[in-house]
Write a protein that binds this DNA or RNA. Structure first.
Length: 456
RNA sequence: CGGGGCGUGGCGCAGUCUGGUAGCGCAUUCGACUGGGGGUCGAAAGGUCGUAGGUUCAAGUCCUACCGCCCCGACCA
């Protein structure tokens, strides 16, 4: 339940225990007319985000907590795979983009600005140029590679038509990693590390992400996979073997220094493709009728190996042992962090609201005091509140003087995995009632039994 | 960027066709009753009707221009 404890220094809010009466949680009973997509509606109603402009959002406390939890999982799994975190700016100079040729190619999607000296700048839509320049400037030897660097930063693409709330905003939060290797073969090893890291990251978020062969697109290159989660509201059509639905990415501990190819093979041997490169004939040939999955999917990650396109243009060239020199072989690996918040909701909800997987839930426990102001109930609720907080679990305490129905509706909407319900009936018998948001089932237990559950 | 739709208290909407004192539900504030799934009654506060210009004795309503937002398509993490 609290497996994510220990984010340690990256914590943004040291207090994981909040009182709803004091918390900024502007929930909406009705759906704002601007939102059509389910996750967008729930995010607005649950007080997670507010729109500033088309495709640009403010993240309110509840939404911000989820965003940071997802970010932290991605960070831990990138680090585990041996990638190193750095931070590049949002605003970039135009020069490096002119060198790669993408200043023209990117077109109107690139937000261009001029500074006071009339210099052409841009709000970064991605970072291949910048990272390649950084790397190329300071590394000169084949001994300096392999390396994988990543950062987690806001980006901006001036989409013609932003939609689906945070799933396709103009401003979005993204993890992108870049690998540098001496040869295509070595690059493949880096690619595999990121591949496995992605499987683990998404699995930890409670998602069944399926790697699908993808078109590398304008970014160039030939080795590429998209990671797709299935959801009715998905933006593209996908086709795969049903075996993928049952694969468990966390089953085997990844040995990043060892051979990852068997894991990759296991995850790529069956048919899986997005509509862009879907081959109906091959699909029918390789997948039995009863195992064919045709569904809609949301892309939450994309990995590419593209070789020397940017290293040549921007001079990321190193000396070789034999005296020659070589442009580095590169790959880039993205995860849409802000998009994932919407994506997880699309994959996990019911008619009452969001159902957060425990690992990304803004709070693990929602404490509901049905009789706020009643001495006995208040006393029990307060003691549970402070005890849960001291155990390190995130808890939100609904201490408002609302009616039972309103409190349940709010907890269901914001999707807290466990609701602890305190009322006169249970207080009298010195037990508590714990409701599981996902199953809807509730059971009575002693206080200690519940605390032990949290410690487990 | 092509096609469609919508802008009226915080949110959801009516009123626009047919011009004549800006309304309803929810939320908010106060009081009372209530108290395990968004309860009831009473009182109160809150609106330049997206913006600008025009027609008219009179514009939320008619005309023109602009801005913003949403949906379908093309495009994308």
């Amino acid at each position: 339940m609290n497996s994510l404890r220990g984010g340690g220094e990256m914590r943004i809010n040291p207090s994981h225990a909040v009182r709803m009466s004091k918390y900024f949680l502007p929930v909406l009973r009705e759906t704002p007319q601007e939102a059509q997509t389910l996750s967008h509606r729930y995010m607005l109603r649950a007080g997670m985000i507010r729109q500033a402009s088309a495709g640009i959002y403010s993240w309110l406390p509840l939404g911000f907590r989820v965003l940071k939890k997802i970010e932290q999982i991605v960070r831990e799994e990138q680090d585990r795979a041996g990638a190193q975190e750095l931070l590049m700016p949002t605003i970039q100079p135009s020069e490096i983009w002119k060198k790669s040729g993408r200043y023209e190619d990117y077109g109107k999607e690139m937000l261009r600005v001029k500074d006071r000296h009339n210099r052409e700048m841009l709000y970064g839509p991605t970072n291949e140029e910048l990272i390649t320049e950084i790397f190329g400037n300071d590394l000169r030897s084949y001994r300096d590679v392999p390396k994988i660097l990543y950062h987690i930063q806001w980006k901006f693409r001036d989409e013609v038509r932003p939609r689906y709330g945070v799933m396709r905003g103009r401003e979005f939060y993204m993890k992108d990693a870049y690998s540098f290797d001496i040869s295509p073969e070595a690059g493949r090893l880096s690619y595999n590390k990121m591949f496995v890291s992605y499987l683990r990251s998404f699995a930890r978020m409670g998602l069944k992400a399926i790697p699908m062969k993808a078109d590398a697109g304008p970014i160039g290159g030939n080795l590429s996979h998209e990671f797709i989660i299935l959801a009715e509201t998905g933006e593209s059509e996908v086709f795969c073997h049903s075996d993928y639905i049952d694969l468990d990415a966390l089953k085997d501990e990844a040995e990043y220094d060892g051979d990852l190819q068997p894991i990759i093979d296991r995850w790529t041997k069956r048919y899986a493709a997005t509509d862009e490169i879907h081959d109906e004939e091959k699909f029918h040939r390789e997948v039995p009728v009863n195992r064919r999955v045709c569904a809609r999917g949301i892309e939450i990650g994309h990995i590419f190996f593209f070789g020397t396109k940017y290293s040549e243009a921007l001079g990321a060239i190193v000396d070789l042992a034999d005296g020659g020199e070589k442009a580095l072989e590169m790959g880039s690996y993205g995860i849409g962090i802000s998009r994932l918040v919407g994506g997880i909701i699309e994959a996990s909800h019911d008619a009452n609201g969001i159902i957060w997987p425990e690992s990304v839930a803004p709070f693990h426990v929602g404490l509901v005091n049905l009789r706020q102001g009643d001495g006995a109930c208040d006393k029990v609720a307060e003691s549970i509140f402070s005890k849960v907080a001291s155990l390190g679990s995130d808890i939100i305490y609904d201490d408002r003087t609302e009616r039972a129905g309103a409190k349940f509706a709010t907890m269901d909407l914001i999707g807290v995995p466990y609701q602890v319900i305190i009322g006169p009936k249970v207080v009298e018998r010195n037990v508590i009632e714990v409701k599981n948001r996902k199953t809807g089932k509730s059971e009575e237990m002693s206080h200690d039994a519940f605390f032990n559950l949290l410690k487990a």
